[in-house]
Design a protein around this nucleic acid. Sequence first.
DNA 1: TATACGATGCACT
DNA 2: GTGCATCGTATAG
Length: 213
Amino acid sequence: MSFINSQITDNNELKLDVSTLKELPRKFFIRQTEIVAKELIGKLFVRFIDKDTLLAAEIIETEAYLPENDPACHASLKKTKRNAPMFELGGILYVYFIYGNHFCVNIVTEIENKGAAVLLRSAKPILGINFMQKNRGKKEVELLCKGPGNFAKAFAIDKLSNFDVLNKSQFYVLEYNNYQDNEIFQTQRVGISDAKELPLRFYLKGSKYISKK
DNA sequence: TATACGATGCACT
DNA sequence: GTGCATCGTATAG
């Protein structure tokens, strides 16, 4: 994240100069979706809104939605207007609206025309906490990015961010923490009716920021 | 056009 | 633990 020199801090957040952190190369996302979902844990998701507003959160929980044999994946039947971003080259955002209330943020994976993505389910707020608190109408830092709908709301993400290219828009994903394999839990996905049994949800073991047990 | 429903969150019991 | 608001999207007619 070369051109952003952030010294911005709110009251209760760590000092972090994100200009020292390395952007994930696009090829990181152009791999098997399960691997991307797992390796995204511990990375820093960043939105640069303007020179006074920088949001960042450590990704704590993700889910993989696979290009094949995954009936829970929005792209499992065919390409539609909604799921079109999932068929682009990996490394862009797929944002959709759900339950009449919420937006969910995904990072598209794999090569073009696969139809796969990783849902960002929860994160640990690092920078821009005041802004997130305002967006969410909640104070508790622990709850700001907890759950996919809340994560989107904290970052003020809606359909306008659909198709945004990571590291070439307001959105960045940066190297941050690296965890060992045995620190990442892999379980069944949340809130779906099809393919419930597939263990495609990943989260940081013991974190208080995960969306649910 | 009409209808059914969902990768949720929150209020309430 | 259970119930449900709310509306864009997919799909059928």
